[in-house]
Design a binder for these strands. Structure first.
Length: 721
DNA sequence: CTAGGGTTAG
């Protein structure tokens, strides 16, 4: 400390002389930051300046101010300054920074304006504060008013413009700077990178007179984050040759590039370097090692790095959690998550996102709710990222109402939020909701994107809204710059075809500007299956097999179409072709998750330990169904066998076994949810409607295309699916 | 720890 602390005597002298000069001040002493008094101070600016800049006061009170700011209690600083006779510009600057960082721009500005003496640091802090609080205009205004902007304030502005996506203005500022130092160069470099102008960044990088480790790291990270991971690695190697030693940040960026480029050997080399150099102490490096191994599908190595990590903070845990998720090891991922909570490592936004993704992977509503609860506890339930994941999770686990509840609570919705809920409506057959959401988007000036269109068309498709579908399709092609892709045409063909407009659908396929791919033709073929149009189906199949000779779905669809028309000769001919070409039909299966345990059923399956009870329940249901006048629809039994046998086969479809098992294994009155890998069979559909009525419970079946909510004799799909 | 630059998890 260059300034010695004042002795009590000295302080006393100051006090006495000050009070003698301003006797009225005694009353205001305990009040916080007396602005009125600052006004009177202005009459003697020199005196004021002398008092304000007395380092001795800052030496005594400064640490207290810092402590309050550190503890997130900017108001505490007022109390300290209340006992503080002469706040100096350093303390005021700290307070301004504190208030800005707490999002209280108004208070910060008030302090700033009340301060009579402002140095360039104070100005820069205030400008930065405006930018941190999202007020670019105010920052610019202050910058223009600043008496002598220095290289720091210029740099703050460049960074601000870049962060607001106004890289052109940043560029202009950079060109106009009277003095450019290396930090300014690096700021501009980073600005280009974060605004996807990575090649301008490269150009700038080559111009930097002397590059330091930050320049190199920015360049490597920038290239990597703009999808140029190979080039990032080239720059990394060049850096080594130029003799600049990488630090923890550099290694983090380089490892990320290795992961994206799946450059396993180089990543391992970096790992060795990390090990030898001691950078494994850095949590960032450690996390990126975990991610690197996970992306290279060496999840065991990720676990090893995790186990050997010196400290386990949220970043490291989340890296492993995410790694497990992306390797399909959802149970393990959720175990990491629950360990975090148990060991009081507070999960953050990303941890929740990954954990919820794993719940989706397990299709487990219970696990999803277990993650939702701590998210709410941490006030992240309405966060846009966590919220988006929650919407997807609730949709996928079959409870659209909960997804909607989350949607409504998210205040700062982004396009992903809107898409998530629109796609949920599609899956759950809430076509009208989807339309209402779309008009809300348009009114709220939210730009829909190509995913929105897919969601909307598929909503129309699942709700049988022909006219709405046609309108949307036209609206998007005429009024937006969204490029229509194959999936959009496939969706539209579905909308038309399922409704029975097969000719119109075929016209669309033949006249679309892109070359129709197998997905588009497959949409047409499945419509033909629904509306028993064998001619068109045969044509569509030919196109599909030309494009994709091993498309088993095409064979199955056509074969089922022949079967339902009793053309068994064609069926067996197709079966032979399939066998010759080695095409295997996907076997139908259904499953139910109860208490975290997945129970899988195949058609006519008797392997389940509770098989006897399941079949007993099914027989009882069969009797009840008969009483209600249910007649099995044998058209859905696509085997060339006697009618009675057909009925038998129908009754033991995997979805029914799963439903019966779910009913006997859960509490009466609760909703049961069954998943199926293929589309639900038509006869099962009508039977389950009645079963829901008989047992007076809601039964949810998710098949390969959507959710069916069965309740008291009706299905949410309105028999249109 | 009074102002400006690079890093992680999706």
């Amino acid at each position: 400390m260059s300034h010695p602390s004042p002795s009590a005597a000295e302080e006393g002298v100051v006090m006495i002389s000050f009070r003698a000069t301003f006797p009225s001040l005694r009353r205001t002493r305990t009040r916080s930051f007396p602005s009125s008094w600052l006004g009177s101070c202005g009459t003697s600016a020199q005196l004021c300046k002398r008092f304000f800049n007395r380092a001795s006061y800052a030496a005594r009170d400064g640490p207290a101010v810092s402590a309050h700011l550190r503890n997130g209690d900017p108001d505490g600083t007022r109390e300290v300054l209340g006992t503080f006779r002469f706040p100096d510009v350093r303390s005021v600057t700290k307070m301004i920074a504190g208030r800005s960082q707490n999002g209280r721009l108004g208070d910060a500005l008030k302090l700033f304006y009340e301060t009579p003496v402002r140095d360039s640091i104070c100005w820069s802090t205030m400008i930065k504060g405006c930018l941190d609080c999202g007020d670019l205009m105010k920052a610019q205004e202050l910058f223009d008013k600043m008496p002598e902007p220095n290289v720091v304030s210029w740099t703050v502005m460049i960074d601000g413009f870049s962060r607001f996506g106004q890289v052109e203005r940043a560029e202009k500022f950079f060109e106009q700077m009277p003095i450019v130092d290396l930090t300014a160069w690096n700021t501009m470099l980073h600005g280009y990178c974060e605004n996807a102008r990575v090649y301008d960044a490269v150009k700038l990088f080559e111009q930097i007179p002397s590059r330091d480790v930050v320049s190199w790291t920015s360049m490597i990270g920038g290239l990597d984050q703009n999808g140029k991971c190979e080039e990032a690695l080239v720059v990394f190697k060049r850096m080594f040759e130029s003799g600049i030693a990488p630090n923890a940040s550099t290694l983090t960026c380089a490892l990320s590039a290795c992961a994206n480029a799946l450059s396993f050997p180089l990543g391992v080399q970096i790992h060795c370097h990390v090990f030898k150099s001691g950078f494994c102490l850095s949590v960032f490096v450690c996390a990126s090692l975990i991610t690197f191994y996970a992306k290279c599908k060496r999840i065991e190595k990720s676990t090893q790095v995790f186990n050997e990590a010196v400290s386990r903070n949220v970043v490291i845990c989340t890296a492993l959690l995410t790694g497990y998720g992306s390797n399909g090891r959802h149970e393990d991922g959720l175990k990491v998550f629950s360990d975090m909570i148990r060991k009081s490592v507070l999960p953050n936004q990303s941890s929740f996102v990954s954990a919820l993704n794993s719940c989706c992977g397990l299709e487990s509503l219970d696990r999803g709710k277990e993650v939702h609860a701590p998210a709410v506890k941490q006030k992240l339930g309405c966060d846009v990222f966590v919220g988006n994941s929650l919407i997807v999770m609730y949709n996928k686990c079959g409870v659209i109402d909960d997804a909607v509840a989350v949607f409504k609570r998210i205040r700062k919705k982004n396009i992903v939020t809107w898409n998530a809920i629109v796609c949920g409506c599609a899956q759950h057959g809430r076509g009208m909701w989807a339309m209402e959401l779309f008009s809300q988007m348009i009114r709220g000036l939210v730009q829909p994107d190509e995913i929105t269109l897919t969601g909307l068309l598929s909503s129309c498709n699942h709700s049988g809204m022909l006219q709405k579908g046609r309108c949307l399709f036209r609206y998007f092609s005429e009024n937006t710059s969204i490029e229509l892709k194959h999936e959009h045409y496939a969706c539209m063909v579905d909308v038309l075809g399922r409704y029975g407009k097969l000719e119109e659908a075929e016209d669309l396929v033949r006249n679309m500007p892109l070359k129709a791919n197998s997905i588009v033709w497959l949409a047409l073929l499945s419509s033909c299956r629904m509306h028993s149009n064998i001619d068109l189906a045969e044509r569509a199949t030919n196109y599909i097999l030309e494009l994709e000779p091993h498309c088993s779905a095409a064979y199955v669809l056509l074969s089922n179409l022949y079967a339902s028309a009793n053309r068994w000769g064609e069926v067996s001919r197709l079966r032979v072709t399939m066998r010759d070409r080695g095409i295997v039909k996907q076997l139908g299966s259904s499953w139910v998750t109860i208490k975290g345990q997945k129970h899988l059923f195949l058609p006519g399956d008797k392997s389940h330990p509770l098989s006897e009870n399941i079949y007993w329940k099914l027989d009882w249901l069969k009797m009840k169904l008969k009483e209600l006048g249910h007649v099995p629809d044998k058209r859905f039994s696509l085997h060339d066998v006697e009618d009675e046998q057909k009925e038998e086969l129908l009754f033991y479809h995997s979805e029914r076994l799963a439903v019966a098992f779910a009913l006997i294994s859960t509490v009466e009155g609760s909703t049961v949810t069954v998943m199926k890998n293929l589309r639900i069979c038509g006869d099962c559909h009508s039977a389950i409607k009645l079963i829901a009525k008989i047992v007076d419970r809601e039964i949810v079946v998710r098949d390969s295309s959507r959710f069916h909510h069965f309740r008291s004799g009706i299905c949410s799909c309105g028999d249109y699916w």
